[in-house]
Simulated scan of single mutants.
Amino acid sequence: MTEKKVRAYTNIALIKYWGKRNEELILPTSSSLSLTLDAFYTETSVSFNADVDQDTFYLNDHLQDTAATQKVSRFLQLFREPAGISSSALIKSTNFVPTAAGLASSASGMAALAGAANLASGLDLNPRDLSLVARRGSGSATRSIYGGFVEWQMGTTSADSYAVPIDDASWDIGMVVVVVNHHEKSISSREGMKNTVATSPFYAGWLESTAKDLIEIKEAIRLQDFQKLGEITESNGMKMHGTMLGANPPLSYWEPDSVVAMQLVRQLRKEGIPCYFTMDAGPNVKVLCRLSDSAKIKTRFAEVFQNDQLIVAKPGPGLQVLTSN
């Protein structure tokens, strides 16, 4: 029997998404921009079956509990209702990325689920509309519909808050990912985001500056100006973490090795190797670099970190449909 599954790749935000203006619809407080990576991805299949009395969800071959299954079930309703499907679903998903460790597993996970549900339901949504629906599962998933550099336009309503491709990133761009800790983080992005928006006195300044950063980074991408791209990426990421430190209670995802990695990036720049760091809601550090420099950057990091903590990633593609027997 032929099984179709959808593969979606993670994306790392260079202009960060940190805050919602509508929790239920997952509408962001600002637009964001990311780079899709080839090294981390999720593969998911969905099959609707009238003979099954409830949705069943397997993640990495493990049957998931009620809470995890209910989240997936609610998301599948966004496909079942318009397609006129009333039957339950069997969902099988495999994460080739640590879950909830600040490596964008929710982005690839929900984008893959959206793609698989789109196939199974027969809705045949176009990429823009699929991006709209994927957003309802995880904000960052809206960007994983596409490859390369992708902008999530915040929009004014749910109908125009979706991602658009900006550039295929085929010009000597890469990342070295430093996996400081692959375990699930103690505070979810959702909770950390909510608390930061509600309590950080720096948040208004973050929104103002990130809008300017987005304009400037798109120009840097258009000109293929790597230095400007990197400088904006590093600055924007640190400003996001600054807003977290201003929250009540203060929030930090950093670990000692996160700081070690950031300092090493600064040292490499002093030595003439252009590279820049960014971090999301987790301790892991992503080093934006020229792909042609990635091997020597990894070699330098291997003097401090274990080899299995270092992953070189190239720009990744958008959703892919895979067929297996």
Rank of each mutant, 00 (worst) to 15 (best):
T44S: 14
P274E: 13
R74W: 07
I145M: 06
S292P: 04
T142A: 15
C275P: 12
N325P: 12
D225P: 02
G246W: 03
M240D: 00
R136A: 13
F149G: 01
V178L: 13
S86T: 15
S144L: 04
G102L: 02
F305V: 02
I85C: 09
T56D: 04
T233S: 10
P98M: 02
L113D: 10
Y41E: 04
A134P: 11
P315R: 11
E231G: 02
A114Q: 10
L33K: 01
D293V: 00
E271A: 14
S324V: 12
G230S: 08
L288G: 07
S189Y: 02
Q309K: 07
N49A: 09
A247F: 02
L322D: 05
A247H: 02
Q263S: 09
R143E: 04
M193G: 01
P127Y: 03
D55W: 09
D225Y: 02
G237S: 09
D53W: 05
I187T: 15
E43V: 07
A83K: 14
N11G: 11
V180P: 05
R290S: 13
P127V: 04
F57Y: 15
V6T: 14
D167A: 05
T299P: 02
T56L: 15
T157Y: 10
L268K: 06
A169S: 12
K194M: 09
E184C: 09
A261I: 06
R300K: 15
S32D: 01
L37H: 09
S324P: 00
Y58T: 03
L223S: 03
L103A: 09
S140W: 05
I217W: 00
V97K: 05
S131H: 12
D308H: 15
Q320S: 13
D124K: 14
Y41T: 08
D213V: 00
K270S: 15
L113P: 10
R21L: 09
H241E: 01
A100V: 02
D129Y: 12
S138L: 12
M154S: 10
P274V: 04
D53F: 09
M238F: 14
A114D: 13
V321D: 03
R290V: 06
S88Y: 09
Y58I: 05
S30Q: 08
G102Y: 05
T156V: 14
G205R: 08
A39T: 13
E303L: 14
A13R: 06
T42I: 01
L214A: 00
I217C: 00
L245I: 08
S32T: 01
A111K: 07
S30E: 01
F301T: 04
L113V: 06
M110V: 13
K270P: 00
E219K: 05
A13H: 07
D168A: 15
G155D: 09
S93M: 12
T42P: 07
T199A: 07
T44N: 08
L322V: 08
D55M: 11
L264Y: 05
K298N: 12
P315L: 11
F48H: 13
E219D: 06
T199K: 08
A116E: 11
E24R: 14
